[in-house]
Design a protein around this nucleic acid. Structure first.
Lengths: 102, 102
DNA sequence: AACAAATATTAAAAAAAAATGATATTTGTT
DNA sequence: AACAAATATCATTTTTTTTTAATATTTGTT
């Protein structure tokens, strides 16, 4: 085992940076925070409470969905979002790898 | 205290998303990983070991520096980088807020 | 069936981030 | 002083994200 020593393999690396990207936006953190505070909540509540555009909210939710960070449950007209805590936890090693080393 | 319930204030929110942004790139995670594995290391070692362009490496290091994630110590010709574990730890709440809730 | 509410999708424009290639700066060496 | 090594910076182009505004889709209601 010689040469470059890399702890992360490429896949793990890309996976984590994707999650980081999903979180790397103030509005998305805000939205996540809001969903978290409500356990599960529909889109209208999110954007009206946070005073965001419907469209923007929907698009950011899509990004969070694609990253696996949240999931939706459709209930009639309403789309109810919730956080996939396990996904965040699984991907958090990208950050937590450095925690506790200070 | 009525209306929108927000756990994060704007400043905290922007601060965390900035850190997330710094981490939201595969090369930067790779570079961080490499520095971590070597405790402290100069730029040439980083980019030659990881087979990256000097310029790219330098620019990514700058982004990490700006975010406070790493710091440099100049020693003659060499710029020696190391990780600011405490900064990462401080900012990790943006992720870790959701950890342990699954 | 017509309509409104809730949400998503899309197209276009604007802004930000990344990559590329070249040049500049600093320091150590001959 | 000239030169090379180490690193940073800069300008340009390319790519990706974000925003904006409009339209489409689905479902529930009258």
């Amino acid at each position: 085992m010689k040469g470059t020593k890399v702890t992360f393999d490429s896949d793990k690396l890309n996976y984590s940076s994707e999650l980081m990207r999903a979180l790397a936006h103030p509005l998305r953190l805000k939205i996540l925070d809001y969903i978290d505070n409500h356990k599960s909540i529909n889109v209208n509540k999110i954007y009206s409470s946070l005073e965001l555009e419907q469209s923007i909210t929907s698009q950011h939710l899509k990004i969070l969905r694609m990253a696996g960070v949240v999931s939706v449950e459709v209930s009639g007209k309403f789309h109810i979002y919730q956080i996939n805590y396990d996904v965040i936890e699984k991907a958090s090693f990208a950050v937590n790898r450095f925690v506790g080393k200070a």
